[in-house]
Amino acid sequence: MTMDRRSVLGLGGVLAAGLVLAPGMRLVAAPENVTEASDKRRWGMLIDTTHCDAACTACTQACRTENNVSIVGDPQRDIHWIRKVDLHDKDGRKPDRSLPVLCNHCEHPPCVHVCPTEASFIRKDGIVLVDMHRCIGCRYCMIACPYKARSLVYSKPKVPPDANTRVPIRAKGVVEKCTFCVHRIDDGGEPACVEACRKDGGGSMLFGDINDPNSEISKRIREVSTTTIRADLGLKPRVHYQGI
């Protein structure tokens, strides 16, 4: 039997739609008119590095589209909310790894400690945010963050033609970083990177409430051996890694 081009595409589309809809079902519920961040929750992430392909940039691409993070064109000053880092064991014993690094939304965030104006702050649900209305651009937070999670806006930002109007762009002179897609979380969704990783990537990112012992992420963190970046600093990051 031969299939013409159209039906192959059609079949692929149906399959893709099916795959997308199933895990996305809980996201469909329309947000209520008023929602409030809950101090009972602590949002966290688990990244399974064994399923993260070095060539894949689904998470970083999705982040740029979702949050209007445009490429400046100067590698020294490009803004990265999430980036892929390639790891090569210096002794050659462990396999090479590739993994995304983003803001770790620490329990004790040094960026928040050093911010003179409380522009960087911890929201009630543990998300570390920058209040762009209050940032004076002193960059002390960038000195203090051990994850290089923050970028200064060095020039007037370009507005992408297909900009996502739900997320404001950032004016020059303020410091910006990953928000865990706080606008999507408040609508009952999950960060764009996690969604993209499941759709187009290795499905290696898991997002959820680590305060809830029954959440999938809490179970996984209990079951598998995980680590956090620079755990020795005592910052208690909420982005956990598996497989390194």
Partner: peptide, 8 residues
């Protein structure tokens, strides 16, 4: 223990 490299 790892050598790092990235676009950032």
């Amino acid at each position: 223990g790892y050598q790092l490299s990235s676009v950032f």
